[in-house]
Amino acid sequence: MIVQDVVWTIALAGMGLIALGFIHVIVQAGRPADETAAARSVHTAHTLQAWLFVVLLVGFIAGSWATLHRFPIPPQHGALDAKQVVDVAGRMWSWQITPATVRTGSAVEFRVTSGDVNHGFALYAPDGRIVTQTQAMPGYTNKLLHTFDRPGTYTVQCLEYCGIGHAPMTTTFQVVAPEGE
């Protein structure tokens, strides 16, 4: 399941529901209600508002728990005990990645920093979609943990605008199957 596809589906559904709500009300507008119907509409609107609040609250609590109970960013202080460690340094406008080959199936800790300005370290899978990213900031080292499940040639693309060489600030990165497989 690709995260981007899930996000896209939820976004379209959410915006579609809002559009339907607007269309429903717009269709009714211009046909004024009499006093009794208007009073009934106000009552219904308050009831719906209360239910909408409950739905949003449940969504807020459930969604927050689902997305945060396993925090998606690894601890930044202390060792991560990953079997593979890759040092990444961005500099206008190139990447230094050591080593440039990792294996699938076990976590890789990327230690990402910058030698000059802010850069964005984004890993693109062979199918052209981002699999993960972090910022490369001067004076800081961001630790990114990722387990690759597909071998292939991944592309590193700078995702934080860093001057005229921003777009070509790219390199490739090899992900191979573990030895013996």
Binding site: V7, G14, M15, G63, P72, A122, I130, T132, Q133, L159
Partner: peptide, 18 residues
Amino acid sequence: VPAILDGTIRNNLVMHNT
């Protein structure tokens, strides 16, 4: 709606600066 989705850390890992 898309703003809230982008403000979610898990999603931001693949949507940030796109």
